[in-house]
C-alpha cells in the first residue's frame, strides 16, 4: 500500500487526494460533514457573536465604527437595560402572550387535529386546504379591519348596508387584541402538525379507551395526546417562539411602547431609542437577554422531542 501511493506521488496532490478518497470514501464524507457543519454553525452563530460585540462595546465607541472584537468591555450594559426601562415587564408581557396563545392554539388544534386526522367525512380535504390557505395570507391583510374592530369606536355593520349589529368592546392595549389574532394566525400550522400525529395513532387504542370507559374526547386527552407528545411539543414550541418574537401585530395593537399597554419584548427593545439618542449597545444587550428564555425552551423541548421519538411509544 505504502509503496503504491509512493509511486503515484508524481501525479500531484489533487490526484493523490482523489485516489485516496476513492479507496476510502468515509474520509471524504467526514471532511464534507465538518465543512458543512462549520459553515452552518458560523452563519447561525455569527449574529449572536455580533450582538455580544455590540453589547459589550460602549455606545459612543459604536458610533465610531466597530470591528470583530469589542472595543472595551462594558458588562454594565446588561444592568443598564433594566435601569432605563422596566425590560423584565416587557419580557413578562411577551411570555404571558406567548403562553396564553400556545394554550389556546394547542387546545383548539387538538380538536381540529382529531377531526382531520381520525374521522372520515365528506369535504375533509377541502376544509383542510381552506385552513391551510389562511396561513398563506399575509398578516398585514388583516391588520386594518382588526384594528378597526379592536378600537371599538364604531359598530359592526352588515356589509354594504348601514345596519349596525353591535359595537365590539375596546380591546386595543389589552392582551386580547394580540392573543386573538395570534391564535388565529398560528392555528393552521399547529392543526397541520397535530393532524399528522393524531392520524398515526392506531384506531385500536382509541377503541380500547372508549370501551374501557372514556368518551371520544376522553380518549383524545388520555390516550391520543399523551402518545402524540412529540407532535404537541413541536406545535407548542413553534407557536410559543413565533408569538414571543412577534413584532408586527403587537406594535400596532399596543398603541405605545409601554409595558402597561401590553407592549411585548420587541416594543421594550425599541424603547431604548428616544427622540435624540439611540443606544445600540442596549438594543443588543436587551436582545440577548430576550432570546435566552427561548433558547432554553428550545434546548429543553428538543431533548423531549428527540426522546419522544426514540422511545418508540407507538410501537405495537
Amino acid at each position: 500500500m505504502a509503496t503504491e501511493s509512493d509511486s503515484k506521488t508524481s501525479d500531484g496532490p489533487l490526484n493523490r487526494w482523489a485516489s485516496r478518497s476513492i479507496r476510502n470514501p468515509e474520509r471524504t464524507y467526514r471532511a464534507m460533514f465538518y465543512v458543512a457543519a462549520i459553515f452552518f454553525i458560523v452563519t447561525t452563530m455569527f449574529p449572536f457573536y455580533w450582538l455580544i460585540v455590540l453589547a459589550l462595546t460602549p455606545n459612543n465607541e459604536i458610533l465610531n465604527g466597530i470591528g470583530l472584537v469589542p472595543e472595551g468591555f462594558n458588562v454594565y450594559a446588561f444592568v443598564e437595560v433594566f435601569q432605563q426601562v422596566p425590560f423584565h415587564f416587557y419580557m413578562l408581557n411577551s411570555f404571558i402572550l406567548a403562553t396564553v396563545t400556545t394554550v389556546i392554539v394547542l387546545f383548539i388544534a387538538s380538536f381540529a387535529g382529531y377531526v382531520f386526522g381520525r374521522l372520515e367525512f365528506p369535504g375533509r380535504g377541502v376544509l383542510m386546504l381552506l385552513i391551510l390557505a389562511i396561513s398563506y395570507f399575509p398578516p398585514a391583510a388583516f391588520v386594518v379591519p382588526l384594528f378597526d374592530i379592536f378600537t371599538g369606536n364604531s359598530p359592526i355593520v352588515v356589509p354594504f348596508t348601514e345596519i349596525a349589529l353591535f359595537t365590539p368592546p375596546r380591546l386595543i392595549n389589552t392582551p386580547a387584541a394580540m392573543v386573538l389574532p395570534f391564535s388565529a394566525l398560528f392555528l393552521p400550522l399547529s392543526i397541520f402538525v397535530l393532524t399528522t400525529f393524531y392520524g398515526q395513532i392506531p384506531d385500536g387504542l382509541e377503541d380500547a379507551a372508549r370501551v374501557e370507559g372514556t368518551t371520544r374526547i376522553g380518549a383524545l386527552f388520555r390516550v391520543i395526546i399523551p402518545l402524540s407528545a412529540p407532535g404537541v411539543a413541536t406545535a407548542g414550541v413553534l407557536t410559543f417562539i413565533s408569538v414571543y418574537n412577534e413584532y408586527f401585530f403587537s406594535q400596532i395593537m399596543a398603541l405605545g411602547n409601554d409595558y402597561t399597554q401590553w407592549s411585548p419584548l420587541v416594543g421594550g427593545i425599541l424603547s431604548y431609542q428616544t427622540q435624540y439618542t439611540t443606544s445600540f449597545n442596549l438594543f443588543a444587550a436587551a436582545s440577548i437577554i430576550g432570546v435566552l428564555p427561548v433558547a432554553i425552551l428550545v434546548i429543553v423541548a428538543q431533548e423531549r422531542i428527540v426522546s419522544g421519538l426514540t422511545a418508540g411509544a407507538l410501537k405495537e
Partner: peptide, 28 residues
C-alpha cells in the same frame, strides 16, 4: 356509547396503552 354498555373488549392488535405500565393499563 361503548362506555355505558357494560362490555369489555380484547383487540386483535392487543391495544395496550403504550404510555402506561401494566397496572395502569389494567386499572384504566
Amino acid at each position: 356509547p361503548p362506555k355505558d354498555r357494560g362490555v369489555a373488549m380484547v383487540f386483535q392488535n392487543i391495544a395496550l396503552f403504550p404510555h402506561m405500565n401494566v397496572k395502569d393499563n389494567i386499572s384504566f
